[in-house]
């Protein structure tokens, strides 16, 4: 029995475990350091308060982020489309969900010319610009990539990974704690973006495996990266926190370490490897 494509990628999984371990170490260290510092100064009440704030705040912030998805889709002017309005798109999505054996997400179309796709919660949003630019096969590849994000629950994972760091950055703003809070915030941001890039590669892999056509996804990525308008992304600025769930990075100057997406060449190289594996006989 031959297996043309391994479904998992051990290196990628190992990378994710390493990043997530570092995040946990960072957060636990931050928590212990804050509490130890306060106990040392005999601020008992304050110590308990900080501990509660960091733990409870982290959890509720992750929850709040989930709640803001709806607002985001509203800002994108994304409206749900039924099978009657977009029969081809729904047909493609039906088949992909059938192939993946997953429940079909709600399908929304955002009325903007910027080509992109976004998957959050149980919703999959594509832009008019995407529909106008891609061929049927390329569009299918992008939808499959987004279904990968949904299946891996990347939105949820990244929200929880980022939440404690956000709490530190936002609420530890008193006296000397500012420095501490900001340090934790920036370190966690770097780690979360690393995690985001790894999960992006994972979604690429899942999507390419789903259609069995990595080259279609590669073609779509090239087209979208080259064709992304360089005009300021005013109407998609709202998406900034959700960069990781988009198909391609929104335009804008950004250092590589802070990017939520791996460089195009990395993604293309990995897809090419998968394509070569598929071509091998026996």
């Amino acid at each position: 029995m031959s297996r043309p494509l391994r479904l998992g990628d051990r290196m990628l999984a190992a990378r994710m475990i390493a990043i997530m371990t570092l995040l946990v170490v960072l957060y636990v260290t931050a928590l212990l350091a804050a509490v130890a510092f306060l106990i040392h100064g005999q601020h008992w009440g304050m110590a308990v308060l900080v501990a509660i704030l960091l733990v409870v705040g982290g959890v509720t912030m992750a929850g709040q982020q989930g709640g803001s998805r709806r607002r985001l889709l509203a800002e994108l002017r994304a409206t749900e489309v039924g099978p009657a309005e977009a029969p081809d798109l729904h047909g493609t999505l039906d088949r992909l969900c059938g192939l993946a054996g997953i429940a079909k997400p709600r399908l929304l179309i955002a009325d903007t010319d910027l080509p992109n796709a976004l998957a959050i919660g149980r919703e999959l949003c594509v832009t008019r610009g995407l529909l106008d630019r891609l061929t049927t096969a390329e569009l299918e590849a992008v939808l499959a990539h987004e279904l990968g994000h949904l299946a891996h629950r990347d939105g949820l994972v990244l929200e929880y990974a980022a939440a404690p760091g956000l709490v530190c950055g936002r609420y530890l703003r008193v006296g000397i704690y500012v420095l501490f809070g900001q340090a934790v915030y920036w370190l966690s941001t770097l780690l979360v973006r690393m995690l985001s890039r790894a999960r992006e590669l994972s979604a690429d892999r899942a999507g390419a495996m789903l259609t069995g056509r990595p080259s279609d996804l590669a073609a779509a990525l090239v087209k979208l990266s080259a064709g992304a308008p360089q005009i300021p992304a005013t109407d998609l600025r709202a998406v900034q926190p959700y960069q990781a769930l988009l198909c391609i990075e929104m335009p804008g100057p950004k250092p590589r370490r802070l990017s939520a997406h791996p460089p195009l060449e990395t993604r293309l190289r990995r897809l090419a490897t998968m394509s070569a594996l598929l071509g091998r006989r026996g």
Partner: peptide, 15 residues
């Protein structure tokens, strides 16, 4: 999809 699959961001083939 089990918890570990979600954490590791991988898809499991259906049996």
């Amino acid at each position: 999809m089990g918890f570990l699959d979600v954490i590791l961001g991988r898809s499991k083939p259906v049996k």
